[in-house]
Write a protein that binds this DNA or RNA. Structure first.
Ligand code: MN
Ligand code: MN
Ligand code: ZN
Ligand code: ZN
Lengths: 147, 147
DNA sequence: ATCAATCATGATAATAATTATCATTATCAT
DNA sequence: ATGATAATGATAATTATTATCATGATTGAT
């Protein structure tokens, strides 16, 4: 009976909140719902404008605070493509993945390559590093934009 | 008799300048020398403070302008690790490479993996993309910082 | 060398995304 | 209910970078 994404996310969020000195908030659930519904890579501003339709009192600062919280507990992921604006996306239940981005239309495709992941580990080891994380972004032109 | 790095860089820079409506400038050479001498991944501010010892009249805006020029003609490369500050490094003659960064001391090691590069092409192709560029950064802890 | 056109530059204002501050409100354990 | 403290909105502050603009340097033609 497979809990839906929202329920799984709130479970994680509640656990996280109760494991440290944090308190419940209704607004976080509004933001969570909007993020999961969109299922895209959104900027904080974009998410804010979506969320305001549901609760006009939510301020941009709370969007940033909440997204940080979501990322801390694994509900969302962050992606900074151009060094200026960070985009946030639902990461729950999705295994680790990298990104393939169209430089014309901005489309983002999730990709995964166990071979690359393994090679990264090897490269780090060869250089005496223990690997903690990595970032792989491929930039190109999607089939639509090639037409 | 292998021209030295500075000479090769100035050759490229001169060609680039003469191929478009740009003019000669002494200050660019001071900045170039400082960048090549350091041979590290520097922020614009760091490079500025080095350069000011040679020519105190050089302003930070010219550092940014010149680094952009260097990157355009392939003399320098840009690396934005944390989404906030961009670092610049001598790229001349160095083949394409990716980066392995120590999250404790900031050390940056250049790495290269033909296998990964090839797999990236394949992934892009499988998704209907033509690959234009990519960014691969590995974050870990170097051997010194593990002690 | 003179001159005009235009690029290069420094100082500084502007920008833009994000974070910090702070007064007010909401949550929660007692 | 109450007291402690977290959450929030408004907005000021921050920070890296870019734009503006008046001034100086370079070039190529006279
Ligand atoms: Mn990966
Ligand atoms: Mn690469
Ligand atoms: Zn596209
Ligand atoms: Zn280190």
């Amino acid at each position: 009976m497979n809990k839906d994404e929202f329920t799984r996310a709130t479970d994680i969020l509640n656990d996280y909140i109760q494991s440290r000195p944090l308190k419940y908030s209704e607004k976080r659930l509004v933001i969570l719902r909007a993020l999961l519904d969109s299922n895209r890579h959104l900027t904080a501003e974009e998410l804010h404008s979506i969320v305001k339709d549901k609760d006009a009192s939510i301020g941009i600062a709370t969007i940033y605070r909440t997204l940080r919280l979501f990322t801390e507990c694994g509900i969302s992921g962050e992606l900074t493509l151009d060094g200026s604006t960070t985009r946030y996306y639902p990461a729950l239940g999705k295994a680790h993945h990298d990104h393939l981005i169209c430089i014309k239309c901005g489309k983002v495709v999730n990709i995964v390559s166990p071979g690359i992941e393994k090679t990264q580990e090897k490269l780090a080891r060869e250089n005496g590093f223990t690997l903690e994380s990595h970032r792989l972004d491929l930039f190109g032109i999607c089939s639509d934009c090639q037409k």
